[in-house]
Amino acid sequence: MQVHLVGGFLGSGKSTAIAMACKALAERKITAGVVTNDLGRYLVDTAFFDAQKIPAVQVTGGCLCSQYDDLLIKLDRLKRAVQPEVIFIETVGCSADLVAAVIKPLLEVRGPHDGNITFSVFADTRLLSLWASGESVPFSNKVMYLYGRQMEEAGLIVLNKRDLVSPGRARQALEDARSRFPAKQIALQNSLDPLQIDIWLDELDALSRRSTPLNSLQLEYNHYAEGRSALGWLDVNLDFTSQSISNHRPMVIDWITALEREFRQRNIGLGHLKMMVKAGKTDARVSLTTGDAAGWRAQVPDLRCREMHALVNIRAEADPTLLRELVQQTAQSAAGRAESQVEEKETEVFRPDYPKPKRRVP
């Protein structure tokens, strides 16, 4: 059984790549499963994989490093449920030190013929390009310290979303990344392209058969913790109700547009905004990050219903209480204009705490 750890910063496209990979493997008659991970309990990613009929379990309440025992339990549960030939473990976007605190401990409990555990770290080509060339980025130096350290421990760096920059900009980003990380294997990728996903899968298969060990990261934990704690976490469930059956798509677009405008006007560095919307039999995921234009609108289908549920995950460099206020205000305004009502349900608001690995192998 192959195990592929997939890390990288918030908004780098990990979930989309994993979902596309699972579909590609299914076409090859290979069963795959996914472990999702987050600090909160209400995850859009898990709901997304469930909607795609991809077997998934979740490790919540902390990063994989601090929830290592739960990771073992969930891996065993996934193996018993679907007997996967391939497992993808998606890490929360603010985590690092994964070689020492996750991969090496897992290798100790795997069988001698189970193969290597691969480690891909994803980076949005747009953000990497700005950072590597010394241009202004939407995050503080504290957060970008974390960003850079994530890539330093990768087995494979994937510069994702290459389709969102010009070919010349993509080539320059690749050259800049190779200059900063000369010992790393680095690839450009568009994870919406099945052919490029096939290339990634073939590379993962090759890496899993090699015995090249990954080195534990030499990480300054206080700086790491400062970068994490600069981020705000918001997970909120919202129920929308209208007097009669109507198409809620315009309301959702109005809501997200107003929210994105607030982030932009306040110079809030948005790691990601993910929304899972359920309207009748329709499930839709909407995702955007800092720098995304109106392309996200195509992700919102017609939503004909009287009652609609939305699960929202926001990760941004901002006070999480402010994030909650902005979501509440924009949701209320959009619902009012659509002559609907909105009610907030289960919600979590916090900043990541100090990382405390359960088990660390230097």
Score class of each variant (00 low, 15 high):
Cys65Glu: 12
Ala100Gln: 01
Ala26Val: 15
Ala26His: 07
Gln83Phe: 01
Asn37Val: 01
Lys29Met: 11
Ala26Ser: 09
Val59Tyr: 14
Cys65Phe: 04
Arg80His: 13
Leu43Trp: 10
Val99Ile: 12
Met20Asp: 11
Gly61Pro: 09
Val99Leu: 15
Ala96Ile: 13
Ala17His: 15
Ala24Trp: 07
Asp70Trp: 14
Pro55Glu: 01
Ala32Pro: 05
Leu71Arg: 02
Leu25Lys: 14
Glu27Lys: 13
Val34Asn: 09
Ser66Thr: 11
Ala32Ser: 06
Ser95Tyr: 03
Gln52Thr: 00
Ala96Thr: 14
Gly13Val: 08
Arg28Gln: 06
Ala56Thr: 00
Lys104Gln: 09
Thr31Phe: 11
Phe49Thr: 00
Ile30Phe: 06
Leu64His: 14
Leu72His: 01
Gly13Leu: 11
Arg28Cys: 08
Val59Asn: 08
Ala96Lys: 11
Gly61Asp: 07
Met20Pro: 12
Val57Phe: 05
Asp69Ser: 04
Lys23Val: 00
Tyr42Ser: 00
Arg80Cys: 15
Asp38Gln: 02
Ile18Met: 09
Asp45Met: 00
Val86Leu: 09
Tyr68Glu: 03
Cys65Asp: 05
Asp69Thr: 09
Gly40Thr: 06
Gly13Phe: 11
Pro84Ala: 06
Ala26Asp: 12
Gly40Ala: 13
Thr16Phe: 02
Gln67Tyr: 06
Leu64Trp: 08
Gln58Ile: 07
Lys23Tyr: 06
Val34Met: 15
Val102Gln: 05
Thr46Ser: 02
Gly40Phe: 11
Leu72Trp: 11
Cys63Phe: 06
Leu64Pro: 05
Lys74Ala: 11
Arg28Phe: 02
Asp69Lys: 01
Arg28Trp: 10
Val102Leu: 04
Gln67Gly: 06
Lys53Ile: 00
Val34Gly: 10
Lys14Leu: 14
Leu72Asp: 14
Lys104Thr: 06
Ile18Pro: 13
Glu85Leu: 00
Val35Phe: 15
Leu39Trp: 08
Ala19Asn: 14
Val99Met: 08
Leu71Thr: 12
Gln83Trp: 03
Ile103Glu: 13
Thr91Leu: 15
Phe48Ala: 00
Thr46Met: 07
Gly62Ser: 09
Val92Ala: 12
Lys29Cys: 04
Val34Pro: 04
Ala56Tyr: 09
Leu39Thr: 07
Lys14Asn: 12
Lys79Leu: 04
Cys22Glu: 09
Asn37Lys: 01
Ala47Leu: 11
Cys22Val: 00
Glu90Lys: 00
Asp97Phe: 03
